[in-house]
Amino acid sequence: MKPIDLEELSTNRREILQATQPPPKNPYVQKGLSLGISFLLLFGAWVLLSGKFDAFHLSLGAASSLFVAWISRDLLFPSGDVATLARSMAGVAAYTPWLLLQIVKSNIHVLRIAFARNPERLIHPHIISMHTKLKGEIPLVTFANSITLTPGTITIQVSAGNEVRIHALDYTTGDMDALREMESRVARAFGESD
């Protein structure tokens, strides 16, 4: 097997993304919206971190958030698509409680192994490869991070052709169904399920 070329991978992903997303309607509106969302997020973080509400500190915060938002205008939300952003935020909010429950379950499982008298007797480590239907970058990252946090598995690699390599601590046949369910939930959260 040849090593994966990172250059090739990122261009592939970009092509897939461009193919799946509709072309922007008005570039100026999109840019303005993208700038506005970044500015609001950064300003919120400023207010939370400074904790001072007088005019002097707020204007300093507004100036620096505007500057950083302008520098990183094509970095945070390049599409500036408010509808998609709001929908995926709602999806993530619905996904998080289920994820937390799964995290607690899998943590208790690993905790029991860690405190067992002979941990090596209880574990069956394996490396597994699976294909995923997810296309966008953010859903893939969410899925990979969720795999790491939940059922006794760690993501090793997400390669071109959407092959995900996983290291499973305690491999059982039920793992596949659990990961498939997680994948469909991530797809639903980001509106990718067809």
């Binding site: 943590n107 905790l111 860690a114 760690i154």
Partner: peptide
């Protein structure tokens, strides 16, 4: 308790990959 489990896992699991399971999951929770 979860932090203690993470430390026990890091010390007792047989190889680097399995130790990461303990470090990555238990430390986060």
């Amino acid at each position: 308790v979860f932090f203690a489990g993470a430390t026990m896992g890091i010390l007792r699991f047989p190889d680097f990959y399995t130790r990461l399971h303990a470090a990555g999951k238990l430390d986060t929770l």
